[in-house]
């Protein structure tokens, strides 16, 4: 076995937005730094670095997590989804479309995380009620919108389909 103290560089294998990624990263690098600096996927933002604001939210094996509080090394073998992977071939998802139609966006800094948490909720439960929607986005601070139009956008998608 390697001397564990020498394991300062981690060989990482994971899938990001469906594509395999292989990179060597410093052990202390967070998943957020990895996505933003190495992969230049800058949709996830750092709003606080301490898990309070939710701007860095990505989906790790389908669940929303604060990428600022996950080491890239911890995401080895994981499936990561970021906002950049949501629209396919330039076509927005119904949820992204709903955010635009309902005016659920202002400065846009919280939007990536909001969309991903809401998307994860809808995949788990296609017809969530208002309470569940509020709960799913309660870990995302938005200073611009007052949240109402965001909740309405998610509700509009939750009400559709089977």
């Amino acid at each position: 076995m390697l001397n564990p103290l020498e394991q300062t560089i981690i060989s990482l294998q994971l899938r990001v937005n469906g594509l395999p990624v292989q990179e060597d990263v410093p052990a202390q690098m967070t998943l957020l730094e990895f996505l933003r600096q190495r992969l230049r996927l800058t949709g996830a933002k750092e709003g606080c670095g301490s898990g309070e604001c939710g701007a860095c939210t990505v989906l790790l094996d389908g669940r929303p997590v604060n990428a600022c509080l996950v080491l890239a090394a911890e995401a080895n073998d994981a499936e990561i989804r970021t906002i950049e992977g949501e629209a396919r071939d330039g076509r927005l998802t119904p949820l992204q479309q709903a955010f635009i139609e309902h005016g659920a966006i202002q400065c846009g800094f919280c939007t990536s995380g909001m969309v991903l948490s809401a998307q994860a909720l809808l995949e788990r439960n296609p017809h969530p009620g208002r309470e569940e929607i509020v709960e799913a986005i309660a870990g995302h601070l938005c200073r611009c919108t007052g949240y109402v139009q965001i909740v309405e956008a998610i509700e509009s998608v939750a009400g559709k389909g089977s």
Binding site: G54, P64, V65, N66, S117
Partner: peptide, 9 residues
Amino acid sequence: VGTDQIRNR
């Protein structure tokens, strides 16, 4: 405890 994202970890 924390937010949904925190509770996932």
